[in-house]
C-alpha cells in the first residue's frame, strides 16, 4: 500500500523532471542548429537527459529526507529534482550563471547542493565511494541517515562500484546502490559488456540483498526502495537495487544513435512510466483535472526557474581563480612555529 500523497509526490517529481528536460533540450539546441556545435548556444558542453528514467529517482527519493545523501552520475537531473535540489539555482548552474549552485564552475554533470544532500560526478561509478562515506559518517555519529548512490547499468563493471559494495557490506553501512538499467552504455548494449543480465545479482558476491524491479513502475520502485532504505536506516546494512528504465533519447544531445536499432528506440518511447503512475493515481481516486493541475504547477515552476536562470548574470572571468581552496594559501611564510617541544629520550 502506498499513500496517495506519496503517489502524488512521485508524480510531481516525474512530470517536473520530464518537462524540465524538454525545456532544457529546447534551450540547449538554440544556437546549435542547423549544424550542431557543442560549444554554441546558451548551454554549451555535453547534456545527458534522463527522459524515461524518472521512475527510479522518484520511487527511491520519496523515502529520503533532506539530511540523507544522494549521489548521481552524469545523468543527474531527475535524481536532483526528486531529491529536492533548488531548481532555480540548478538551472542557473546549467546555464553557467553566477548564481548557479556552483557559481558556474560545475555545469550539468557537476551539481552540488549540500542543503538537499545531493552531488553528482561525471566519472563513471565515482559517486559510489562518497555515498559510502556519507553512510559511514552517519553510522559513526549514531545518526540514522541514509546514503543512496545512483548509477547506470554500464557502471556496474567499474571497480569503484564493486569495491564500494564490499566496503558498505563489511561495515554494514546505511547505503543503497540504485542501478538504473536503461540497457545501453552510450553505444554498448548491456549484453556486450556483461554476462550478467540482472545487475542485482552482483549483490550476492558481497552477501547483501539484491533486488531488481523489472519495469519502470514508480510504485514498484517505491515498494522496493521502502525495504532497502528502511533496512539501511535501521542499521542493517546496504542493498543493491536495480530498476529497469528506458533511454528515450540519445546518450547525450547530438548523439546520432546510428548504432541503435530503430525498434529499440520505438520500444523505449512507447513505454510511459509517467502515464503508468497516472493510472495508479486514478485508481486511488484522482481525476484527470487533478493530474492536469499537478502538471500545470510543474510547468509553472520549471518555466519560472528557467526564466530566472537566464536573467542571472554570467560570472566574471576572474571568478575562475576562486574556490580552489576554502582557505587559499596566502603566499609563502618564512615564520617558524614556536612550539616548545618536550625533549624525547633519544
Amino acid at each position: 500500500m502506498v499513500l496517495v500523497s506519496e503517489l502524488r509526490e512521485m508524480y510531481e517529481d516525474m512530470v517536473t523532471a520530464r518537462y524540465y528536460e524538454e525545456r532544457l533540450q529546447e534551450e540547449y539546441l538554440e544556437g546549435k542548429q542547423p549544424a550542431f556545435d557543442i560549444s554554441a548556444g546558451p548551454i554549451p558542453g555535453e547534456l545527458h537527459l534522463a527522459a524515461g528514467q524518472e521512475a527510479a529517482a522518484a520511487g527511491v527519493c520519496r523515502h529520503l529526507r533532506d539530511d540523507d545523501t544522494a549521489t548521481a552520475p552524469h545523468r543527474p537531473h531527475h535524481v536532483a529534482i526528486a531529491k529536492g535540489v533548488d531548481l532555480k539555482r540548478m538551472t542557473a548552474e546549467i546555464f553557467g550563471r553566477e548564481n548557479g549552485l556552483s557559481s558556474g564552475k560545475g555545469g550539468h554533470m557537476h551539481l552540488f547542493d549540500p542543503d538537499a544532500g545531493f552531488a553528482c560526478s561525471g566519472i563513471i561509478a565515482q559517486g559510489c565511494p562518497p555515498a559510502v562515506g556519507a553512510g559511514l559518517a552517519a553510522k559513526k555519529r549514531n545518526e540514522d541517515g541514509v546514503a543512496v548512490a545512483f548509477l547506470g547499468e554500464g557502471a556496474i563493471s567499474q571497480g569503484a562500484f564493486l569495491e564500494s559494495l564490499n566496503l558498505a557490506a563489511v561495515q554494514r553501512l546505511p547505503v543503497v546502490f540504485v542501478v538504473e538499467d536503461n540497457d545501453w552504455a552510450i553505444s554498448m548494449p548491456k549484453g556486450r559488456v556483461t554476462d550478467v543480465a540482472d545487475g542485482s545479482q552482483r549483490a550476492a558476491g558481497f552477501d547483501m540483498p539484491g533486488v531488481r524491479v523489472d519495469y519502470d513502475d514508480a510504485t514498484a520502485v517505491y515498494d522496493a526502495a521502502r525495504e532497502a532504505v528502511g533496512r539501511a536506516r535501521a542499521g542493517n546494512g546496504p542493498t543493491l537495487l536495480e530498476v529497469q528504465v528506458h533511454r528515450r533519447m540519445g546518450h547525450f544531445m547530438g548523439d546520432p544513435e546510428s548504432y541503435r536499432p530503430e525498434e529499440d528506440v520505438e520500444a523505449a518511447q512507447a513505454r510511459d512510466s509517467i502515464e503508468r503512475l497516472a493510472e495508479d493515481l486514478r485508481g486511488a481516486g484522482l481525476e484527470d483535472d487533478d493530474l492536469e493541475a499537478i502538471r500545470e504547477d510543474a510547468r509553472e515552476r520549471v518555466d519560472e526557474a528557467i526564466e530566472w536562470a537566464k536573467e542571472q548574470p554570467e560570472p566574471e572571468p576572474d571568478a575562475a581563480h576562486e574556490d580552489v581552496f576554502v582557505n587559499p594559501p596566502s603566499g609563502v611564510t618564512t615564520e617558524e612555529p614556536t612550539h616548545e617541544l618536550a625533549g624525547g629520550d633519544d
Binding site: G104, K105, G107, P317, A319, A320, V324
Partner: peptide, 15 residues
C-alpha cells in the same frame, strides 16, 4: 593557471 577547468564560458575562456 592552477585551477580545475571551470564550466561557464567566461571563466573557461579566462583560463
Amino acid at each position: 593557471p592552477d585551477v580545475p577547468l571551470p564550466y561557464a564560458r567566461p571563466m573557461e575562456n579566462e583560463v
